[in-house]
Amino acid sequence: MTVHSKATAQQKSIGPIGLALHVFNALGAAVLGFLEKTGSFSIFVGRAVAHCFMPPFFGKQLLRQLIDIGYYSLPVVGMTAIFTGMVLALQSHTGFSRFNAEGAVAGVVALSMTRELAPVLAGLMVAGRVGASIAAEIATMRVTEQIDALTTLSVNPFKYLIAPRLIAATLMMPILVLIGDIIGIFGGYVVAIYNLGFSQGSYLSQTWDILETMDVVSGLVKAGVFGFIVAMLGCYHGFNSQRGAQGVGAATTNAVVSSSIMILIFNYILTQVFFS
């Protein structure tokens, strides 16, 4: 009641100065809100990382997450990699044949897979699969007070829920991407040999000639960072979920969207760091 009457009083007395104040008010609130969010996120990240290195460790939870995040993501990452490798071979062949440069196909497939496509696409797929499920699971636990229950039973939720997911995602993503590299190059190889008429020996030797350790390593480092991003944002949005089913839905969406965007941003930053 009182709030209402205040608001109407404000609306009546609004002039040009009042309007300007209104705009500044909103602007200030937005900036403050943003700073507060970044601050609370940074504290969350700090705490989460610290708890990864402090005992007690929950080995069984870690094992579960390694299997959940690593093993069960294999089909998704494998499918993504093989079709990406195949289409890369096809596309680069049609492109390069205009310049009589078909010999570059093997190189294009190998470099694009290892440096960019395997880590980024695997990262995005894992963001959809793992990030969403982390966020939904933790948000549901938040909403149903299971996280509070953990605390009252003397178990730190950062150690029990968050650390295992962070560690598992950061360790498993590079392994997934390494497998994705191999499968993707194999996909390109199959198309090149059976569809485009390349000879087996020359395609493989071209692949080996062009690939350098750094190409693969940079992709794997990216993968580790992407894994960390996916798990961290999944945990963050889940942990800070609003009440109710709507809160869980919003947490899941926010986790997937924000981690996908962060993956693309960090991919650029890391590429800059590695190759310039």
Partner: peptide, 19 residues
């Protein structure tokens, strides 16, 4: 806080069982 927490037990409104 962990030490104090060991003295506590809580029955939550919604049960809060780990599903």
């Amino acid at each position: 806080r962990g030490e104090v927490m060991r003295k506590f037990g809580m029955l939550f409104q919604g049960g809060a069982l780990f599903d």
